[in-house]
Design a protein around this nucleic acid. Sequence first.
DNA 1: ACCTGAACACCGTTCAAGT
DNA 2: ACCTGAACACCGTTCAAGT
Lengths: 186, 186
Amino acid sequence: MTELRADARRNREELLEVARQVIREQGVDASLRDIARRAGVGIATLYRHFPTREDLIAAIIGEGIRRLNARAAELSETKPAGEALEEWLGYIASRIGPYNGLPAAMDDAIAMDGSPLGALCADLMDAGDRLLTRAQADGAIRPDVKFPDIFTAVAAISAIATRSGPDTSTRILNVYIDGLRPSGGN
Amino acid sequence: MTELRADARRNREELLEVARQVIREQGVDASLRDIARRAGVGIATLYRHFPTREDLIAAIIGEGIRRLNARAAELSETKPAGEALEEWLGYIASRIGPYNGLPAAMDDAIAMDGSPLGALCADLMDAGDRLLTRAQADGAIRPDVKFPDIFTAVAAISAIATRSGPDTSTRILNVYIDGLRPSGGN
DNA sequence: ACCTGAACACCGTTCAAGT
DNA sequence: ACCTGAACACCGTTCAAGT
């Protein structure tokens, strides 16, 4: 949070811009060396600004995660609880699915704490928990599921988009969401 | 299929034995160099016997895949079609989930043809297709799902076992399977 | 304060040279 | 026919030396 020297600030911004593009194209496991090279800085400079790969990823996708949280609040106010949750899950999948490796990284990060990505995802978990509780109170979602499971499932299903395409991922997510509804028969 | 020289046969078997253990411990992306080293052969010898990583994986898990096929036939004869399919999916997940990276590798292999792993999985797809068709005829499973989607879903959900443990994976799979049943309401 | 490249310990894959 | 290690082009990560 302290002030950065002008050259350091420029390097940091150039790294972020390059990383944003490379990670979008190649996924979260893209070569850090490659990113440093394209940004025109030494590899150690990348490490100085982002000590771990997670720090870099968190810096890039932080804004996107905050948008997911905002969307949760918005849906919560404009739609019935069940619909709000279901639509939100679809929104999450559509946003994180395209980034190869991101769903797994997020799900991993939630488990370990102290990780920069985990901190971002913690808010996501809280928002999801609230939506789920309300949806369950409405009888729109089975009472026996917990949000961490739902998030893990959505993450795994989102990741399908990279391999089999977004349409397949969406169809599978819809089946899973159907399974979250209270069963009619038994 | 032609005869191998005695030393070549020994090397091949030693490689398979070591690879079986290393891949069980570290997953399908384990270091090939490491496997060759532990097997006491040169790295190029590994490549001679298994030109691609997929060839090695296929050689190791081929037997397991054949067991999955056998189980499909068995369930098909002893259980109602819907139950047979559902139990089979759980069985697949419990078998491939523990091998880190295998579900993704199998799902990838199905798409490309000519791949050794894809050839093994083709039988799996046929067996699944038959089980699904019968289950749908019985009205036990939604008429609008196709088996390739189901396999992709089961693969993705199986992979959860490595990260979040087999119990989480099983719970999520059960929700997905619930979603495969015809819905009572709409 | 910050940047840099060399250094270290790894990969996957190929190939010339050996028996 | 088969085996071998060196070679090549990469990694991630750290650290001494520079400004």
